[in-house]
Design a protein around this nucleic acid. Structure first.
Lengths: 226, 226
DNA sequence: CTCCTAAACTTCGTATACGATTTCGTACAT
DNA sequence: ATGTACGAAATCGTATACGAAGTTTAGGAG
């Protein structure tokens, strides 16, 4: 039971590579279109190419990278319509996850979500997009983390990852939506508190995200014509 | 531009292995719980273990197999609750796919779907579960194949694959549902023809699958208590 | 100056070999 | 008879090496 190096992360090298590359894509170190050369990454991590190949294949199956024979791997998501499709998919999945999770939310969860939302509201002045995004994710995480269906939960997390990887390059926030967003959060919380039926909660959660998408598209088209 | 072997399938060996293992899982050659030994599969296909590892990793990311360090890979889905979760997820995704696709369906598509449904109706006597399942899949494929969002389409197909892999071991059909199912198909077609709003179509498509799930659960619990 | 051709370079693809870890069977002691 | 310890077999994990395919670039002909 000898540990190799005390400070080293656990798991096989292929898993370490998978986690690291994924993190770099999500956090934006590797932007969409970035070319992932196997030998180069292997050299950076001090391992062989075989574990890197495995990691890339897994990321490919998750939709974070594209991989072509004899061409190489690139971080996916250059196409701007990708953003639309990802947001649309996430709105559907997240809406369902929230609806399935809502009956299992206790008063403590509601209170916690409301607390996060108040931090969001306080964040409206001295607006910090990064902080706002993080708090927003935390708010929604509280809402759907009790979802009993692991597949749906997994899809939500994949959607968030994919969204983060896309936004890292095209990071144009919509400040005008922020205020509305916080209000919609409060409305959603009240809907859950009142134990509204699942359809209503699902629809509200889905529309909340769709509205963000619409605002983004409106801003994009405005930016294009300017 | 020399082809290796004329009869050989295209693509790298890792892709061939991926497609073959996936096909075997979906068609039931490898049942849930079946242990996938890397060296054994490599020997069967006449290749080394490296491409097999890649294939297994991709299938793991798709949820078809589980892979543990120093333990090995097994076909996923032993747990009966897996069936419930998969069906629930698929009902959500498929409902959304059908709703997004329906505005784009032409008269020819409707006619084709109706033709398939009539074959399903004719199939009700001399009931053949395999044929019924195949026709049922074809019917729904017509309905959601025009879905413009590739992510959602991909998730539907993954759901179908996963469902097939689960059913291959637990193949207990619900004959009582078959007649209702055909009628619901017709109702769904009329809803699409009348250009009902997307919400109504989505709800109908989702409920259609949920009803099948409920019937399955009822049958299962009845079988358990007998 | 442009277009075509070929060679060199880059990068992926996989076989082989060896090390690490787990599991299973067997023998021994209690 | 049962529990434990030890060893052998099976299996995964990865480094290395070589081969195949694609891309780029240099050179020459028109």
């Amino acid at each position: 039971m000898a540990e190799a190096v005390p400070g080293a992360p656990a798991g096989s090298k292929s898993e370490q590579a998978y986690a690291l590359i994924k993190a770099r894509i999500v956090e934006g170190t590797y932007s969409p279109g970035h070319r992932l050369v196997l030998a180069r990454i292997a050299g950076d991590l001090g391992v062989s190419v075989v574990p890197i190949r495995e990691a890339i294949r897994r990321l490919e199956a998750e939709g974070l990278v594209t991989f072509e024979r004899n061409i190489g791997a690139t971080v996916a998501g250059i196409d701007p319509t990708e953003y639309l499709y990802t947001m649309q998919t996430l709105s559907i999945i997240e809406g369902a996850a929230t609806a399935l999770s809502s009956p299992l939310l206790g008063a403590a969860d509601i209170a916690r979500a409301r607390g996060v939302n108040e931090q969001l509201r306080a964040c409206l002045k001295d607006f910090d997009p990064v902080r706002f995004t993080r708090l927003n994710q935390e708010f929604h995480s509280v809402l759907f983390e009790h979802c009993p269906n692991p597949h749906i939960l997994d899809l939500v997390h994949r959607g968030w990852n994919r969204l983060a990887s896309l936004r890292s390059s095209t990071f144009r926030f919509v400040p005008g939506r922020a205020t509305e967003s916080v209000d919609e959060h409060e409305a959603l919380l009240r809907l859950i508190e009142s134990q509204a039926d699942a359809d209503a909660i699902e629809k509200a959660a889905r529309l909340h995200r769709s509205a963000t998408l619409d605002a983004y598209l409106a801003q994009s088209s405005a930016a294009d014509s300017s």
